[in-house]
Nucleic acid binder design. Structure first.
Lengths: 217, 217, 217, 217
DNA sequence: GATGAATGAGGGTTCATTCAT
DNA sequence: AATGAATGAACCCTCATTCAT
């Protein structure tokens, strides 16, 4: 059995995604093999959509654009997703893994201080990538009514993150760990947002160093 | 002879008081009368658009929606604005005054500490309003290329704010006033964004108090 | 009683139009005076429309444009004309006089040869002006169905012209005066059309001289 | 197993023969099949547009009209043409071939006299077609500014024609072949224009014979 | 008579989605 | 499974015309 990893090149940065690839056998295709082929196509479409959504916004990307980018026909997309919105859903599932992984890595970092430093480092290190994701999600999150599922996703992620931060600040004996966690969490969101809008006019490196200093890391 | 009448005009919640005290000869309206009508209608359209843009996003609001909300015909909107985008511009002008006033008020608050406390207080006090603005502008700001004027607006506002904050922290003898200013500015943006998404699930009051404590205000 | 003549300046060329101006008296306005005022306004609108139609085409000129050019309100135009199309009608009446005048002048030129030379000279002399008129009328004449009245106008003018030419060529003892008349009439139309399209790329002067030579004038 | 069916599709006067002889497995159409469909539809749309443009003018023909005439949906037209203007372009390409062929045929006619006779004959023979083209192009050519490509087309065609005529008259030893060429070219345009407006009231046949006589053909 | 605010039908264009093949 | 032609609703915008004043 072979297990390979694909890296999604987004021009400037890269997103690491695991590809649950399957055995190749000579036997007539089993249901499982069909499933695997389907899964691969699905992934292709998702990656194409992710690339485009983060570059041009969900609304400015047409299904035709996605099909072109993915190298499949427009019709085929509706064989894998019921709706354009459903593609978005697929992307979210994809991204979940990454977030979870970040949290898990942080949790394994050692002392609370090391954890915090690791977390801040990760945020800045993956900022470009996060910015792409934000560019995709923020506008949709702000459209209330439609896209309720996005808010659920954000909620859940927020809780995860907050939980981790609260625990860290608690371990570091902050007097009000919950509010400190909120403050830092909100700050991360602000950084992500502003980086999207301002780009390199933001002094990212200096902000990172400043945070380390503030938290004595 | 003079007679005045109240006319109930279909709409949602508005009474149009039409003063019919006119010459028997049916003289045309004076320029001043026309000006008044225009001003009223313009504002009505702007308020309608602001309401809808902040509720449903600029892109998800059609000109027809705005016309319905404002209780006027679709065509009339183009009598007041050259373009859907121009409506947005009108809204920005409308909101600018408020922002400028906030900065001005803060500048008159007294000692640096009082200024900072005043500023933070204002941000939280007007968060609802700021959230409305954010919900309108952020998605557009994230669409690079189009809507360049929005980025200019944001840039300018950012510089104003940052300048004020740098001066305050400088006066308060912070070692790195510039970075502290960035941190707080970015935090405000994060708060505004998250409030949009999370609404009342955010512990706003506690965050406000927490900030006062952190800055010893 | 006073009689004045106004000249319609169309930038490059001018159209001579007679203004049946009226006595100014101190007596309360008689019906005739009101008529005169109306006539003047009407003329203003017609001149404005003529200017715009010939510059920008009938379809590319809005009633708002005309009202602006004429310096009156949009509404007032409908006090003088039932319809945008009706304005066109008014213009045609206006132009008729000129055509009739040209024919009359030619008829008074003397010998047939002098008449023909006079007519050709007039065509080239007024070509720019005619081109403006053509630009107005040709597109409308080609829209069959609507604007039937334009075709009637053109028909009548054509018959007048042709009649004049037939008589001239008959007097000049051409073997087939009718066909020679058609040929020259059609040629004039072609010149007018091509001058519109080609502008100064057409060798107008040389063509005029060439015609004189061909007809031994 | 094979089965073929004739399907009557609503429209005015066309039968669509759909060959349903397909695999049971419903294989997707081959590229060649798609090409064929596209070519057919494209031509159908062009013919529909040509019909309407020449009957009612470009501006008075809506895309909806074209779609109705072609028996397709409005949206489909934009699958084949980027723009309403692009349809016009398509028509021009379609017609260009014919014009070029006319010139080529004339060039192969033999002696200069035979060439000229051939050319005049062609102009009158194809007058109906030329009239259609004129009715489409003239109004657009007269709208300066927009539709520049139309003027380029006309220019090019004019140069072609003129060049051919100059050479013929030169070979026929006319003293001023260039001006004679202009005169005849302009006459052709006048004929085409007037035929549009006057229709059968023009004595076409007699004019043709008259031209032969004038040029001793 | 005179104004310009107001209307509403229609124009060109886009795009998510369906469907015959 | 796979294609892309085809649809139709919606979008932004224009403009001749009406109407209260």
């Amino acid at each position: 059995m072979e297990c390979s990893t694909i890296i999604w090149k987004s021009g400037k940065d890269d997103l690491i995604l695991t590809d649950r690839s399957v055995n190749i056998t000579m036997a007539p295709r089993t249901t499982a093999q069909f499933e695997a082929i389907r899964e691969k196509r699905r992934e292709k479409i998702i990656l194409a959509a992710m690339e485009l959504f983060s570059r041009q916004t969900y609304h400015n990307t047409s299904v035709a654009d996605i099909s072109k980018q993915a190298g499949v026909s427009k019709g085929l997309i509706y064989n894998y997703f019921t709706t354009k919105e459903d593609i978005l859903n697929g992307i979210l599932d994809y991204l979940f893994a990454i977030g979870d992984q970040m949290v898990a890595e942080t949790r394994a970092a050692g002392t609370p201080k090391e954890e915090l430093r690791h977390l801040i480092g990760q945020v800045f290190r993956f900022l470009h990538q996060q910015a792409l994701i934000s560019r995709m999600l923020i506008p949709l999150a702000l459209e209330m009514g439609k896209f309720d599922f996005i808010n659920e996703v954000i909620d859940r992620k927020m809780r995860d993150y907050l939980g981790l931060l609260v625990q860290i600040f608690s371990d570091m004996d902050y007097p009000d760990p919950e509010m400190e966690a909120w403050t830092l969490g909100v700050l991360f969101d602000g950084i992500s947002l502003d980086y999207n809008v301002l780009g390199d006019r933001m002094p990212l490196d200096r902000m990172e160093q400043y945070l380390y200093k503030k938290y004595n890391l």
